[in-house]
Write a protein that binds this DNA or RNA. Structure first.
Lengths: 144, 144
DNA sequence: TACGGTAGTGAGAACGATTCTCATTATTGC
DNA sequence: GCAATAATGAGAATCGTTCTCACTACCGTA
């Protein structure tokens, strides 16, 4: 690959350069506008509805790229559908409303510690974990 | 262990009677013979290999029935494949080896408490949670 | 402003896990 | 043994997601 002649750039500026396209901007805007998790199909529909012409494959690619870069979080919903949401990059978990999808980010240092300890006790290394809380939020309790 | 007879079943419609068929017996045998989680497809292959003629649909149905009755646990693996395993009925979590699938059941009272507390703080009710630990077991570390 | 390398795009095909259909078969209570 | 009916199985159908590949548009540079 031809070396980029970029003089005054920091060493880590070997930017893979994610280009800013109309489609990605629209996707981010849509994600920004919603509180809870959204599915790829759902986002696709929403954008089409707004007159944005975006291919489904593009949605999936953009979402995947953003997940990889840590810009958004993904959870596998009840079915087999993955849902996405803009997120803070710090490690955290989610408390998701089963009915309306409203989501609260929570962090649990105690859980992290417990996880490492348990794993260590059993001789496991490179430990990772998934933890999601599901419930019914106050609004839905009142409404229900 | 005291079998918990589900009090929810109406008296007039007696036992839903899950019949003991050759296929289900083979499936349970196969599950009993393995330590870690197995996928439906995997189990199907294994049984075929042994000369047991079993349909894939049957595998899925039997697995689903057993999950419903609490006889086995299921986790969605990295991909989109669900994996199953015979399990104790008490609430617990899993520490799964990413490479060989070997699984250890672990329980974390601290986590349960933390989950309820967090949920309550945010006004959520009917809270449930999923928690799985993934890592590399000692055997695989040595082998790797 | 024009140019060109290349990341990004999109329609539709491909994929893979799971579920459904429905005629056939096997289990169980009697 | 018999009848009622739960269970089975082959293949089609679903459904979310990924892949293919020719085409397009972004962006640094000339």
């Amino acid at each position: 690959m031809p070396r980029k002649t970029d003089s005054a750039s920091p060493p880590e500026q070997a930017a893979p350069a994610t280009r800013s396209t109309r489609q990605r901007r629209a996707l981010v805007a849509e994600l920004s506008a919603s509180d809870g998790f959204r599915s790829a199909q759902d986002l696709h529909h929403a954008l089409r509805q707004q007159g944005e012409s975006v291919g489904l494959a593009t949605i999936y690619r953009a979402l995947q790229a953003m997940v990889d870069s840590g810009e958004l979080d993904t959870v596998k919903a009840d079915g087999n559908e993955a849902v996405y949401r803009l997120c803070s990059q710090a490690h955290h978990h989610h408390l998701v409303c089963r009915q309306c999808g409203r989501t609260v980010e929570v962090s649990g240092p105690a859980v992290e510690r417990w996880a490492s300890k348990v794993a260590e006790e059993h001789g496991f290394t490179e430990v990772d974990h998934t933890l999601e809380l599901f419930g019914v939020c106050q609004a839905c309790q009142s409404a229900g």
